[in-house]
Design a protein around this nucleic acid. Structure first.
Lengths: 154, 154
DNA sequence: TATTGTTATACTCTATAACTATA
DNA sequence: TATAGTTATAGAGTATAACAATA
């Protein structure tokens, strides 16, 4: 591997080997996802299915479109995803009495159990990932990430 | 054999609305990339082309395969990417005298100039992204990200 | 007319296999 | 036999347009 140990830079903008923040995030994201995929697969879920269950675990979605927006997913792709989750008995779609176009999406007890199981696996992996970080460092990192996510929410 | 630290059952593990670390990283990555894409496009580069130039700005690649591995990219897709960069005069491929199968890839002065221009745009955007963070917080965040990237390099 | 859910289609990105020329 | 570069193709993932039912 590359071992270019540079002294701390004065003006980072002129250094060619200073990693872009976006590149750092992209690398970490890919590695975390690659590590999590087998855990999800072992319990019969795809990444997007897990994300959907995670959202629904917080509360039901009034419409599929709302769920798609919360997930940052495409509403047309969500259809097939929910079909599979429904067949597996992990979610339930029922028509909204107020608006018969809409379908309220809710997680089932079985879906909640599956979600918790996967989530515990994933959190164990995350603890391993952050093993070298002190509690304070972990809190600081999580706080920074949360700020970054919410910064662009406006 | 690696042991997964088990006995510490913490309170956060039972919360459904605690964001996964992976989800946080994925969200931030997507947003950063979405914000950077127009900057890259305005200067005629794709994300992967920029990544290639970033690597080559540090030093030439002895083989295309080595470059692909450094980038975390596929060697077969790299061909077309380098073709376009070469046609644009941003990189140069010359046969290795030592091994006539290999082609040494180097960035051209024009490529370096283009890379610097885009990089400055991107860094300006990153500064904007971290506007709410103090210098210490920015350093801490970057240090944490760097640690996470290198942790799995082994 | 606008919106929800849906389907079909096209497009992009990615992965795999196979070929050539060298070693 | 193995490796670097290349090509072609198949597959997954994604985006876009259009439709029926309802508001």
């Amino acid at each position: 591997m590359r071992t270019i140990s540079q002294p701390e830079a004065v003006t980072i903008d002129t250094r060619d080997d200073q990693e872009d923040l976006g590149a750092l995030f992209a690398q970490i994201t890919r590695r975390v996802i690659d590590a999590e995929r087998p855990l999800l697969h072992a319990r019969g879920l795809s990444m997007w299915e897990y994300i959907a269950l995670s959202r629904l675990a917080i509360g039901s979605a009034p419409t599929q479109q709302a769920l798609a927006e919360q997930m940052g997913y495409d509403k047309t792709r969500l259809i097939d995803l929910l079909d599979k989750l429904a067949v597996a008995g992990l979610v339930q779609r029922r028509p909204d009495p107020q608006d018969r176009r809409a379908r309220i999406v809710a997680i089932t007890p079985s879906g909640r159990a599956r979600h918790r199981a996967v989530r515990n696996d994933i959190r164990a992996l995350e603890r391993e990932l952050l093993a070298g970080f002190s509690d304070d460092e972990q809190r600081a990192l999580r706080a920074a990430l949360t700020r970054l996510v919410q910064a662009h929410d406006s």
